[in-house]
Nucleic acid binder design. Sequence first.
DNA 1: ATGGTAGAGGATCTA
Length: 259
Amino acid sequence: MRVTTWNVNSLNARKARFIEWTCEASPDVICLQETKMKPEAFPYLELEGMGYESAHFGQGQWNGVAILSRVGITNVKVGLDGGDGSSEEARAISANCGGVSVVCVYVPNGRSLEDDHYRYKLEWLSKLKLHLEKNYRPDQDLVVAGDFNIAPTDLDVWSPEALIGCTHVSEPERDALRELCEFGLTDSLRKFYPQSGIYSWWDHRGGAFHKRQGMRIDYLLVSKSVESRLKWALIDRNARKGEKPSDHAPVTIEFSPPV
DNA sequence: ATGGTAGAGGATCTA
């Protein structure tokens, strides 16, 4: 079973690249972030033509998350427990795909350490943990995937020195991520690649990609039962090259399916 | 020169 997470930074703008990449990589499940699409605009039929059933939580201009599956999709849940209902931003969607529980998240950016959005980010992360505790058990097949907007350690950024005092690397954010993982989740990519220099996001500005100035902020956290069946993990940097790329590369894992 | 780019939407806001 192959599962991908990809912040596409507008599904409309990424349509051609998304279709090209998906046909080539052919994941069973795809978690999308930043669809930036109204609910009624989501291309359910076109995705069905590619073999994917999908569930979308969209709000238009910003945010927007979706789960695509070609192994079935049931028990779709939109948002987080403890959220504000209809006023909640479109940052989380969950479903069961072929016997595996999948949670797709787009964690708030935080903007700066002094910004209210930074406090919102930390609160959102604690709500995500409550959401996991309420809806799942650590001993089941669970994948929590998405754009976390946190670089877990200094290994995950191009220059810790250049990022002192910035969001994505602050201790409270990293603590919140560790607390989330205490539910029983492991950073799947790090099982295969312990080294530095592996990133999933590069700023569109200043030629950051070509200068290798990136961060690893997109990942798939997996429960023990999935971890024990992992075959490989990969960040496809090629998707960040060429015409009209997203600023994020897709991250994919493959594991033996449920028995 | 407090800079740069991309996306949405139609002026700025977000990242």
